[in-house]
């Protein structure tokens, strides 16, 4: 099976705002094979969440989503009628959200909500659905699953709720799971557990996983592929090894400089930071969006920036072929 499970070409998301159009996602490409983990990395407002919501077809009608190609298991998501999209969502592809505290409906029990995910797509009895729900709760590390099923979301902690969300996404054994910053709202100790759980489940069920995050530490741990997003574009992509061993875009280097490396970063030495803020994406954006914050910027950065290959899958979008010095 060499056909990618998800193949996206030139995806754009435009948001009409009072001052014109906000080009939140500007022509990104990525593909993902069965069993692979793609991490989409970037800071707030880089368009990474919008990208994942666009794939799920969960963006409001006000937002304009366009793509030359957005294929999931060989079927074009862009031209798919609402009804078929609905049949795919939660069945073949599922999503886990950032905010476990508010992502479960307060009015229904955990069991009801888990069962709903299955019974929307399969003709099974409530009892069968409950049995599967209990089974999956056990799988995501929740003890006393039977009694949890009868509890309401407000009776569970954030970490437990995120485990419930993960179990819910697994109800129909999807081929693709999109996790949008699943650990951001959780305690650090819980974060590691949830990530390990996701990675284990992915391997066990041979699913593809898209993990949206701003945490490079997370990426290093579980990514097969990495896409670094900045201001609505993928500025660098490649295998995790390529990105971490040879970061080629100044922004990626800046991000990597922001995290301490044991043994390399000296105690008391300030960590790197990237000065400035993400530019406004309202109206036409040309050239490299990062140039205002980049210490390598030259005049040519304002014109069209080529996408360069650094060997293998590794690609980056920068005017320079070889960077002369460390960024920031």
């Amino acid at each position: 099976m060499n056909d990618p499970i998800l193949n996206v070409k030139n995806l754009t998301v435009d948001i009409p705002v009072s001052g014109g159009t906000l080009h939140a996602v500007r022509g990104i490409d990525f593909e993902l094979n069965r069993g692979e983990t793609l991490c989409i990395v970037g800071e707030s407002g880089s368009g990474k969440s919008l990208t994942s919501l666009a794939v799920m077809g969960l963006l409001g009608k006000r937002l304009q989503v366009r793509a030359d190609k957005m294929e999931f298991e060989g079927r074009d998501l862009g031209s798919m009628p609402q009804r078929q999209m609905q049949a795919l969502r939660g069945d073949r592809m599922a999503m886990i959200f950032q905010e476990p505290m508010t992502s479960l409906n307060p009015a229904y029990t955990i069991g009801d909500q888990l069962c709903e995910a299955l019974r929307l797509h399969r003709k099974v009895s409530k009892a069968e659905a409950m049995a599967r729900a209990a089974d999956l709760l056990g799988k995501v590390g929740i003890t006393a699953a039977e009694s949890r099923l009868r509890q309401f979301p407000h009776q569970l902690s954030g970490g437990l709720r995120q485990r419930v969300m993960i179990a819910m996404s697994l109800m129909c054994e999807p081929d693709l799971i999109i996790a949008d910053e699943p650990t951001t709202a959780l305690d650090v100790t819980i974060q590691a557990q949830i990530l390990r759980l996701l990675a284990d489940l992915k391997r066990e069920m041979n699913m593809a996983l898209i993990l949206v995050t701003h945490d490079l530490g997370v990426v290093a741990r579980i990514a097969d592929k990495v896409a670094v997003m900045y201001a609505g574009e993928i500025v660098e992509s490649g295998s995790a090894k390529e990105i971490f061993d040879a970061p080629s875009h100044p922004y990626t280097r800046g991000l990597l400089n922001c995290i301490p490396v044991p043994g390399k970063t000296k105690p008391g030495e300030p960590l790197g930071s990237i000065p400035g803020i993400v530019p406004s994406l309202i109206g036409d954006v040309s050239g490299c969006a990062f140039r205002s914050r980049c210490n390598q910027a030259i005049e040519a950065c304002a014109s069209t920036v080529p996408e360069r290959s650094a060997g293998g899958e590794h690609k980056y979008r920068c005017i320079h072929t070889q960077l002369t010095s460390e960024v920031a």
Binding site: M56, L58, Q86, A87, L88, R89, G90, D91, A94, M95, F97, E99, T102, S103, L104, N105, P106, A107, E116, A117, L120, H121, M165, M168
Partner: peptide, 25 residues
């Protein structure tokens, strides 16, 4: 609310989202 988005992500139809998930709350 986030849980309404969750309901849509599960594949619930518009009517179900509206009446079962939203109106009750």
């Amino acid at each position: 609310a986030d849980y309404v988005r969750t309901a849509r992500a599960k594949g619930a139809g518009a009517g179900r989202v509206l009446f079962k998930h939203a109106l009750r709350n």
